[in-house]
C-alpha cells in the first residue's frame, strides 16, 4: 500500500470561532479499514474537527481530501452542494451523540432506516422494508418494532437505530460523535460491542470522537489527542494509552481508573 491509497487526507485544517477556540494545524491521513479515535477534554476541538470532516462546518483554512468509491480524490470543501449531499447520504455517515439529532422522531424505525435508500432512488417498498428489517436485526432491534416510532424506544435502542439508519447505505467513512455518551454503562457495553463487530465485519473506516478512553481502547486502532484545538499527540491506541508522552496525555490517562 502506498501513501496515496489514503481514504481521507487532511492538511492544515483550521477553524477559528473568533474567540480563540476552534481547531488549528490539524493534519492526518486515514486508510481504509482504520478506526481513528479523537480524545481530549470538552472544548478541545474534537467535535469541531468531526463537524469539519462531515461538512457541517466550513474551515477557515486547510483541505480535506476524500477518495471516492470510483477512485477520484476530491476536496470535500470544493464539492458542489448537490455532490456533497449525495456523498452525505451514500458514502459518508454521521452518528450524532444524541440520537434525536440523527433520527426522524415522527417517522417509524423502518422509515428511518429506509430513508437513505429512498433518497438515493430506491422505489421498491418491499426491498426497502427488507433492508430495514435486516438492519434492525443487525443492530439487535426486534423486527416487531419496525413500525414503531423512535420516541417509544429506549436511549440505547435509539442509538442503535441511528447506527442502522447510517450504515444501511454501505458508507465508506463513518463519523461518530460520542456514540456511547449519555447511555447507562451496561447499555454502553452492548452498543460498543455491536459497533466493534460491525466495524470489523464491514471493514468500515471510522473517525470516532470520545472522551472515554475505554471506548477508545476497545474501538480505535489509532488515537489523536487534542488539547486547545491542536493535536498534541498521536499514534497507535496502545502507544498513546500505555506510553503517553505529553504531560496532558499522561494526565488524561492517569485520570481514569482503568482503560
Amino acid at each position: 500500500m502506498t501513501r496515496d491509497d489514503a481514504l481521507l487526507s487532511v492538511r492544515d485544517l483550521a477553524l477559528d470561532y473568533g474567540n480563540g477556540r476552534g481547531v488549528r494545524d490539524v493534519s492526518f491521513r486515514l486508510w481504509p479499514g482504520e478506526v481513528l479515535g479523537i480524545v481530549g477534554e470538552s472544548g478541545s476541538g474534537k467535535t469541531t474537527l468531526l463537524k469539519l470532516l462531515g461538512g457541517q462546518l466550513a474551515p477557515d483554512a486547510g483541505t480535506i481530501h476524500y477518495r471516492m468509491a470510483g477512485g477520484d480524490m476530491v476536496d470535500l470543501n470544493d464539492l458542489s452542494e448537490a455532490r456533497r449531499r449525495h456523498l452525505g447520504r451514500t458514502e459518508l455517515a454521521f452518528v450524532h451523540q444524541n440520537p434525536r439529532d440523527g433520527l426522524r422522531l415522527a417517522v417509524t424505525a423502518g422509515g428511518n432506516v429506509g430513508e437513505r435508500l429512498m433518497a438515493d432512488g430506491a422505489r421498491h417498498y418491499g426491498r426497502i422494508r427488507a433492508a430495514a428489517l435486516d438492519w434492525l436485526e443487525r443492530v439487535e432491534i426486534e423486527a416487531g418494532r419496525v413500525d414503531d416510532r423512535p420516541t417509544t424506544f429506549s436511549g440505547g435502542m435509539q442509538q442503535r437505530l441511528q447506527i442502522a439508519r447510517n450504515l444501511v447505505s454501505g458508507p465508506r467513512l463513518v463519523l461518530m460523535d460520542e456514540p456511547t455518551g449519555g447511555l447507562d454503562v451496561s447499555v454502553q457495553a452492548r452498543l460498543l460491542d455491536l459497533l466493534r463487530g460491525l466495524v470489523a465485519d464491514l471493514g468500515l473506516t471510522v473517525v470516532i470522537v470520545t472522551h472515554d478512553l475505554g471506548v477508545a481502547r476497545l474501538l480505535a486502532h489509532r488515537l489523536m489527542v487534542m488539547q486547545g484545538g491542536r493535536v498534541i499527540e498521536s499514534g497507535l491506541t496502545d502507544q498513546v494509552l500505555d506510553d503517553p508522552r505529553e504531560p496532558y496525555t499522561q494526565l488524561l490517562v492517569s485520570s481514569v481508573l482503568a482503560a
Binding site: 499514534g235 497507535l236 496502545d238 502507544q239 500505555d242 506510553d243 508522552r245
Partner: peptide, 9 residues
C-alpha cells in the same frame, strides 16, 4: 517485549 511489539516507542 512492549518495545518489540511497538507499544512503547
Amino acid at each position: 517485549l512492549k518495545v518489540i511489539y511497538g507499544t512503547y516507542r
